[in-house]
């Protein structure tokens, strides 16, 4: 954006006593409430960002427990009654020989949620105390978390499609299990947690070094 060259020192809007709009990037003087260009609310840093991150994160963790304990999918095939949890479903796919799909399910519904919890916790901790990772790396981590978190919802959709599709009388019937609800909530809560994290906080500790 700066045409005049890279020699000018980098400054943040806050150091210059200004507030930037998160939607359209326009900078205003401190005290402005709404953006002149897009009408969005202005805040130098999102108020209560960290509190909201932790609150949503713990809510997500709590509902993640029943999501794994209770059945996600209830199948009745020719008199056989079967209840599958999230992990159980992936293991069953693996035993059937569909390794690729088993991997997709396992990554989307086990690995991604757990690494998301850890990543958001780490990023939130890094705002207040010194952590090993450089801000540039932490910023990349933040972008990955933002991008990938939604994909965990795939398991809920799979259950919805199966329950709608497999309704074949006595031959096969699929019912959604209660874990689908808590898993969907867990994904939504962690998405809200990631969205509550103001990325500018990641860089703030770095300000003195520049």
């Amino acid at each position: 954006m700066e045409i005049s060259g890279k020699s000018t020192p980098l400054r943040t809007a806050r150091q210059a006593g200004l507030v930037a709009c998160q939607h359209c990037y326009l900078v205003h003087e401190t005290g402005a409430v709404r953006c002149q260009r897009c009408g969005g609310k202005l805040a130098s840093r999102m108020p209560g960002s960290l509190q909201r991150v932790w609150a949503w994160l713990f809510a997500g963790l709590i509902v993640y427990v029943p999501a794994n304990v209770y059945p996600m999918l209830i199948t009745d095939t020719l008199g056989q009654h079967e209840e599958n949890t999230i992990v159980g479903g992936a293991v069953e796919l693996f035993n059937h020989g569909s390794y690729g799909i088993a991997a997709v399910v396992f990554v989307a519904s086990v690995m991604i949620p757990i690494s998301k919890f850890l990543a958001i916790g780490y990023l939130a901790l890094g705002v207040r105390s010194t952590v090993a990772m450089h801000p540039h790396r932490r910023h990349q981590l933040y972008e990955i978390v933002e991008f990938i978190g939604r994909w965990s919802m795939i398991d809920v959709f799979v259950v919805a499609i199966l329950a709608a599709l497999v309704q074949l009388g006595n031959v096969a019937i699929v019912h959604p299990g209660i874990a689908a609800v808590s898993f969907a909530l867990s994904v939504a809560f962690t998405m809200l947690s990631a969205q509550s994290l103001d990325p500018r906080l990641i860089w703030d500790a770095d300000e003195e070094i520049r």
């Binding site: 943040t12 809007a13 939607h23 990037y25 900078v27 910023h139 990325p199 500018r200 860089w203």
Partner: peptide, 9 residues
């Protein structure tokens, strides 16, 4: 303008 991610002017 400022970067929405790191607040750099």
């Amino acid at each position: 303008i400022a970067c929405p991610h790191c607040d750099t002017l």
